[in-house]
Simulated scan of single mutants.
Amino acid sequence: MIYAIVNILGKQFKLIQDKYVYIPKYSNKNIEEKIFFKQVFLFYKNGEIQIGKPFLKNIHVEVKILKHLKGKKIIIFKKKRRKGYKVKNGFRPSFTKIQVISFLEK
């Protein structure tokens, strides 16, 4: 098994070879477009672990954008008791579904 811990838009994700993952919306890149992530914190291959300080310079992750979609609705409800104050809001976060193609070692 090969995997890497990668920084994507300020959050850390575990990316596994040939698996897909949902990340926060990654700009307006086209579907089927390939992109590279260069901020790799940790890389695991064949029982060997490489840890960056803070990033690994010789490893990049190549991913393909599969689609852009919206998640489930998140409800925000605020209330102050005995004051008659109630506010209900909600939103649907945007996500991008990506698939890991390969890990490039230089």
Rank of each mutant, 00 (worst) to 15 (best):
P24T: 03
N89A: 11
K34G: 02
H60L: 14
K97I: 05
G10H: 02
F77E: 15
K34R: 13
I74A: 02
I31S: 03
I76K: 15
L56V: 02
V61A: 05
M1T: 11
K78Y: 10
Q99C: 12
F103L: 09
T96K: 10
K29Q: 04
V6Y: 01
Y26C: 03
R82T: 00
E62T: 01
N28L: 12
L42V: 15
V40L: 05
I35D: 04
K29D: 00
K57E: 10
K67E: 14
I76D: 14
G47R: 07
F41K: 07
K86C: 04
V61T: 11
F41C: 00
I59Y: 03
I65Q: 03
K88H: 14
D18P: 01
V100T: 12
Q99L: 12
Q17E: 13
I5E: 08
F43P: 09
N30H: 10
K83W: 04
K86G: 02
Q50I: 09
Q50V: 09
K86Y: 09
F43A: 02
G52N: 12
F55E: 03
M1P: 12
I16T: 09
Q39P: 02
K70E: 11
K88G: 05
K64H: 03
H68A: 05
K25L: 11
N89W: 10
I65E: 01
K88R: 14
